[in-house]
Amino acid sequence: MNLSASENTEFLEKNTPQAFLNISQIDMVFPTDTGGFTALKNVDLKIDKGEFISLIGHSGCGKSTVLNIVAGLYQATKGGVLLQNKEVNEPGPERAVVFQNHSLLPWLTAYQNVELAVKQVFNNTMSKAEMKEWIEYNLKLVHMDHAMFKRPDEISGGMKQRVGIARALAMQPEVLLMDEPFGALDALTRAHMQDSLMEIQSELNNTVIMITHDVDEAVLLSDRIVMMTNGPEATVGEILDVKLERPRSRLSLAKDIEYNRLRSEVLTFLYEKQRKVENISSKAVTPKSIPRKRVSSQ
């Protein structure tokens, strides 16, 4: 079947009207010097409203590419993304992004960073006082109300990431996209942030796509874990339903049988089925001409 972009969209609309967010048969080809590099091939995923999805896969498989296409920052080469049956073709605040390295504006305070987003999104619908209240509410949600007026270089990495999340939440997005939001944090802070995120999620029930490298994080937070195969031509390998009851607590889950089964499924997928053979088995070959300490000939 060879459909043009608009025909393609029509076709999709007729056939899958229910999905809230529909990532439909996406191909992504990056132009390179040596021709096209097919990063993604036929990525297909349907997400319901209020679902928390984790994307997991080896480094370089194309997770960020998927996220950026949903965000509208990249354009898929083939296929497309439908949000509530409307095609996504540019970035917008209804698909808020939390970037890996916080990407707060360094010259603005935490409050002003959130304010920039709120002013842009709710300019016509909120009064000044309402905006102020809304900004403070979101900062409180991530427990950052005590450092509202500090600038990014005056707060810790975890705090910056929280402000980044507050900024995204404050846009009241239909989908929240997070690219390794806790990747740069230490284990303790990360656990703390996961707990806050679960708490926020139980309150707001957002639709979330989160990229992670951390198996425990994926199982702890998600409703479904989407595991991607290795690139090039990466695609959705397996999808794992996580039917653990909420609220979840990491301590009691540690002994839970279902939790450990899910965990080992993800690990099996990553380290048996999609092992990165080339990186692990091919040892570096020592070059023949190693510069040695010069031995004097006399």
Binding site: P91, G92, P93, F99, N101, A117
Partner: peptide, 14 residues
């Protein structure tokens, strides 16, 4: 300018 900051601006549709 850091491309992340530009992406923030794009997402906000400034």
């Amino acid at each position: 300018i850091d491309s992340d900051l530009l992406n923030v601006s794009k997402v906000l549709r400034l």
